[in-house]
Design a protein around this nucleic acid. Sequence first.
DNA 1: CAGAGTACGTACCGATCGGTAACATTGTCA
DNA 2: TGACAATGTTACCGATCGGTACGTACTCTG
Lengths: 198, 198
Amino acid sequence: MRSKSSPDSIPEAPRRAADRIRDTAFDLFYREGIRAVGVEEIVSQAGVTKPSLYRAFESKDELIAAYLRDYDQRFCERFEAPGADHPDDPKAHLLAYVDRLSRRASRDGYRGCGLTNAVIEYPDHDHPAHQVAVESKQNLRERLREMCRAMGARDPDELADGLLLLIEGSYVSGQTFGDGGPARMLGVMARRLIDASM
Amino acid sequence: MRSKSSPDSIPEAPRRAADRIRDTAFDLFYREGIRAVGVEEIVSQAGVTKPSLYRAFESKDELIAAYLRDYDQRFCERFEAPGADHPDDPKAHLLAYVDRLSRRASRDGYRGCGLTNAVIEYPDHDHPAHQVAVESKQNLRERLREMCRAMGARDPDELADGLLLLIEGSYVSGQTFGDGGPARMLGVMARRLIDASM
DNA sequence: CAGAGTACGTACCGATCGGTAACATTGTCA
DNA sequence: TGACAATGTTACCGATCGGTACGTACTCTG
């Protein structure tokens, strides 16, 4: 059940330096923001040293890009996961994701979507962070269109964009309002939009 | 028509250092992000020097807070402006704002809402930037509720939150997708939500 | 015209930023 | 035992960060 070749049951921590850096950077970048976190803080909290970081990543920007690719992967898993409970029912799949997001985003301490946050922190289109994040969002838009098509919407692209607005709105409003924020209405609003678009 | 006591018609630039700093900081903070802009860049682009900045503002954080208060004021003006064309018609007022936002947010180079961006750049609830931005957003939420009440919605608070999700979603999606992004659907989605809530 | 404020600039501070060079240490596998 | 890869250690780099001590020029008032 546990990883490879550990002699016996050491539960945490001794993994490769590159992995620990990646995990620590993920947490810090997500929680505190990318620009707010220096490489010094990352390596010290990861229990490694700076040269180890620069042996694994050629620059901070590359580490940021790696973080965002990791984030995108975890996001896709979280987005697709509810599909297992609703095979061949894209509407139920989407609503299941939306309902889970609604709950997460209307609790205190919610930090939104790491990819959305990255676009805002790095408005420069040439920056790798911006590029990775935007590409992920374009994939999400396409995926939503696909689902809206599959659920037989009148104008699937239009509905997909409406849902995307609600979802992105939940990411950011969750951070702004915390507990009891507008994100708690995401589920009913998504249903209302879907119902009005069939 | 022009300001006070200029000897004659000098059209631009010689104003007080504090004002030039405030204006320059506004543009730079908004376009490039707050953390991305150093005080050095602000003063040099404003054509003044650092001590002038620190005579007018006691710290960078205070300048940031001033920027966000300015932003909030301009936002309120932009939000209320369409009301002049639609006295006693909150629905038309709201839709007029929404339609203008929709156009702005689906053009290339759009940078979203400075207040929303600030919440994301400063997740720490104790930071003045976070506090000013959140307070402004709470005011907006209350204003939307008021308008939804006035337009006779079934559940005004619920509708207000739905509209807020769409609006915030447009702010961030505008930055992510640029031209032809989902924000161009804001108008039709807002109408659909309103119609389904009466 | 003297003198006091006011408004601003010159030059600098220590701290931190991202990033690196050189070398010592460890664990692994042959 | 020896070679190799991975990591740690230490000390450092130039640039930039936010912030300030201090001198100077203008203007308003007596």
